[in-house]
């Protein structure tokens, strides 16, 4: 069962004394189960830090994070993290990369092979089971990263700018595919991005972080109904889309986009 995520008055300071960097300041977020949340924020504001804390990889300086009723103190199989820069094992094939989590959980070889193959198919990588990451394009590599996270069947999926390193076209495709997967089988998703339009297209709800020490400066619902994956053009042309985009730009401290003048 997908679980809720509660971030309860969390702060984070790296280092101590003169070198201390206060990154996150008293952040509280409550994400109900099966919600798809995007987090927007300027570079260096602590998005990765927050994601890794939710995954149990980094200790909190104050506060508490819960997945369902469990307080997170170390990584659990309930949450899976998709890393900002893929982090695939270069000496493992697609299949071996995807089954990593199950291998660590001690699932026997034939079962984990089968489940890994299923996920490889679902993310559209069939035929590349035996390829090494260096033989795959960036988009394909992140599919492997996605399949690796989903393969352990987590309740909660944490995605840290998963498409940040991809070109626009590949990114479009990946977004559509992600929605298609998610809209079939809803899980709780936290998705960090720099890309405002991406966040509006994907999320039920968008949170904006300020500059460090950051807190949440905006929290809005995205009204477009689901399934959305087939309706990108329609959604992006909706006037509410432009309004939300404008609002988010302002909250991120970006100037209004000026229409370039068309010279006839």
């Amino acid at each position: 069962m997908p679980k809720s995520i509660t971030v309860d008055r969390v702060s984070k300071t790296y280092g101590s004394g003169e070198d201390a960097v206060h990154v996150l300041d008293d952040i509280s977020i409550s994400i109900p189960e099966k919600q798809f949340v995007c987090i927007l924020g300027p570079s260096g504001c602590g998005k990765t830090t927050l994601m890794k804390m939710m995954d149990g990889l980094i200790d909190l300086s104050a506060g508490e994070i819960r997945i369902g009723d469990n307080v997170i103190t170390e990584p659990t199989p309930e949450a899976a993290l998709v890393f900002q820069n893929f982090e695939l094992f270069p000496w493992r094939t697609t299949l071996e990369n995807v089954e990593l989590g199950l291998e660590i959980l001690g699932v026997d070889k034939s079962t984990r092979r089968e489940r890994a193959r299923t996920w490889i198919d679902r993310v559209g990588l069939d035929g590349f089971e035996e390829s090494y990451p260096s033989e795959l394009s960036g988009g394909m590599q992140q599919r492997v990263g996605l399949a690796r996270a989903l393969c352990v069947d987590p309740e909660v999926i944490l995605m840290d700018e998963p498409f940040g390193a991809l070109d626009a076209q590949t990114k479009d495709k990946m977004q559509t595919q992600l929605l298609q997967l998610w809209e079939q089988e809803k899980k709780t998703v936290v998705f960090v991005t720099h890309d405002i339009r991406e966040s509006i297209f994907l999320a039920d709800r968008v949170l904006v972080m300020g500059t460090k020490p950051s807190s949440i400066v905006e929290d809005i619902e995205i009204p477009f109904e689901r399934p959305r994956w087939k309706r990108r053009v329609e959604i992006e042309n909706d006037e509410r889309f432009a309004e939300i985009e404008q609002l988010l730009r302002e909250r991120l401290g970006l100037k209004a986009e000026e229409e370039p003048e068309v010279v006839q």
Binding site: D55, G56, P75, E87, W91, V152
Partner: peptide, 29 residues
Amino acid sequence: TPEGLLEVAESFNASWLFTMKNVVLPYEI
């Protein structure tokens, strides 16, 4: 050994021995 790969193993709660055998050692070769 790349921090990121170690974190991947850690995020799946890998044991020290697993990490040595499947992350550090192959990277080492």
